[in-house]
């Protein structure tokens, strides 16, 4: 089941974050999204050609795949458009039926919905998204992946340290342990 979908703008500002309504502690997902952005930045930079580096074909794709080795509880996928709009998808690790192709399709549909949404002249690009139709669409994506299951928060605990005022990208270290 999709636990969380995050859409970030070009400056890494959050545009829309939707978390499955069954989650007990949504704050953890906010931090997961932010730390995932670090990885997205890294993966979307063109790498210098070194022996053993990722092949050119992978670099050119907008879909970034699994962002970091999956923990036992969640898998985090990323996508970065050419306009540096980023999307993060967090799914339950126990959902083994979700294939890579399906994830790709989800991102593509999200991207289409996003590009339709920005055609609205009353929406300022880069601002938090308030479009009802886009919200509904993302809700439907979260709901589409099966009946809501209660996620047991004791399955994982999250340790993080962050600066007092503003959690910056570098100021968060996220550890997942079961």
């Amino acid at each position: 089941m999709a636990l969380c979908i995050g859409v970030m703008g070009a400056e890494n500002q959050p545009l829309l974050i939707k978390i499955s309504p069954n989650i007990q502690d949504p704050i953890k997902f906010h931090f997961m999204l932010h730390s995932a952005l670090d990885v997205v930045e890294e993966k979307s930079q063109p790498l210098p050609k070194t022996p053993g580096s990722i092949s050119g074909a992978d670099l050119r794709e907008l879909y970034l795949g699994l962002l970091y080795p999956s923990s036992d509880e969640v898998r985090v996928y990323g996508y970065c458009a050419n306009t540096r709009m980023k999307m993060i998808l967090i799914v339950e690790a126990s959902n083994t039926t979700l294939r890579d192709n399906e994830i790709r399709t989800m991102f593509r549909r999200l991207h289409v919905a996003y590009s339709n949404m920005i055609m609205n002249p009353f929406y300022d690009v880069g601002q938090p998204i308030s479009s009802k139709s886009f919200h509904d669409f993302v809700d439907s994506m979260i709901a589409a992946f099966g009946v809501g299951k209660l996620v047991n928060p004791t399955l994982y605990s999250v340790e993080m340290e962050y600066f007092e005022d503003v959690p910056t990208l570098t100021g968060i270290r996220l550890l997942l342990r079961s």
Binding site: S44, P46, L59, R60, E61, L62, C80, A81, N82, T83, M85, H111, V112, Y114, S115, I118, M119, P121, V125
Partner: peptide, 20 residues
């Protein structure tokens, strides 16, 4: 500016990542 910004999202949706 508004037109260009929004247009690019549509046009680059399926485009490979730009090199430079």
């Amino acid at each position: 500016y508004q037109v260009g910004q929004r247009l690019i999202e549509r046009l680059t949706k399926e485009h490979a990542r730009f090199k430079d």
